[in-house]
Every structure is written in structure tokens, then in C-alpha cells.
């Protein structure tokens, strides 16, 4: 076989990548993602818990304090319900006050359930308060 003919034949061969099924694969992947994806709508409250040192006692006395004892709520040592707490916090107009005046102390006993804690946090945050957690003194 002459050499120049061999060369000609080689030129005629065209290699093609089969891409016909690419779109099918792609759409299958899309359907997979669309079926497997769940758009999670998370609902939450933003609780701003500043970190810092203990304030002097005089200043602590002026700061509104919410105390959770078991399933009971106390605001400045007065027992009340969550609705009443909401009204009392609303009356304080915390959102209009500067940063350090918006602090609400949150104290709780060991047996306080998270449900009540969360509702109290939500009430304080909704009324513009900044929550400061009160730590128990280390037992001597």
C-alpha cells in the first residue's frame, strides 16, 4: 500500500466524544438534587450574651433581674407569669436605651427546664434586652 494513501485515510477518521447523553445525565443529577434538598426554615431568637467580669454590687442592684426558680418566674423578686414579664419588660423601653442600660440579669436554678429558659430569653430579646447570665458563687 502506498504511503500517501495511508496518510489520507488517517485524515478522514474523525474522533467524536459522544455527548448526546450528557444532558440526560445532567438532568438526572438535577432531579436528584431537587428531590434530596430540603429547604430548612429555621426559626430562632437572637440572644446576645455578653461576656465580662462581674459588676459591682451597687450597679447590680439597679439592673432588672429575672429569676427562674424551677418553673416559676420572678422579676425583681416579684413572682409573675411570662405574659406579665413581657409587659414589665415592655414598660422598661429597653430598646431605646444605650447598650449598658439594656442589660437584664438572668438567674436560674439547676432544675429550670430549657423550655422556660428559652421563653424568658425570647421575652428579653424581643423587648430589646441584652441577657447577662448570673453565675453562682463557687462554693467554699
Amino acid at each position: 500500500m502506498p504511503r500517501h494513501r495511508q496518510k489520507q485515510e488517517k485524515k478522514h477518521r474523525e474522533s467524536e466524544i459522544p455527548v448526546g447523553s450528557f444532558s440526560d445525565i445532567a438532568f438526572l443529577l438535577i432531579i436528584y438534587f431537587m428531590v434530596a434538598t430540603t429547604l430548612v426554615k429555621v426559626k430562632s431568637i437572637t440572644a446576645d450574651l455578653p461576656t465580662g467580669q462581674k459588676q459591682p454590687q451597687a450597679q447590680l442592684d439597679k439592673t432588672p433581674t429575672v429569676n427562674l426558680r424551677g418553673s416559676e418566674v420572678y422579676f425583681n423578686d416579684n413572682k409573675l407569669t411570662l405574659d406579665e414579664l413581657n409587659k414589665r419588660l415592655d414598660a422598661l423601653d429597653l430598646s431605646d436605651k444605650p447598650g449598658d442600660k439594656r442589660v437584664v440579669m438572668l438567674e436560674s436554678s439547676d432544675e429550670t427546664p430549657y423550655e422556660l429558659y428559652f421563653k424568658t430569653l425570647a421575652a428579653i430579646s424581643a423587648n430589646g434586652g441584652v441577657v447577662a447570665l448570673v453565675e453562682e458563687e463557687a462554693k467554699k
Partner: peptide, 21 residues
């Protein structure tokens, strides 16, 4: 109860996180 979750809340606050409860 508080004794279980509050240390974690405090840990997030100490690390500088803003809590989305």
C-alpha cells in the same frame, strides 16, 4: 435542665458567638 445546657451557652458566649436559639 439548666445544669446541662447553660455551660454550653456560656461556652458559645465565651468563644464570641452570638447565639441563635
Amino acid at each position: 435542665s439548666r445544669e446541662k445546657f447553660e455551660p454550653v451557652l456560656k461556652a458559645i458566649a465565651e468563644a464570641g458567638g452570638v447565639i441563635e436559639a
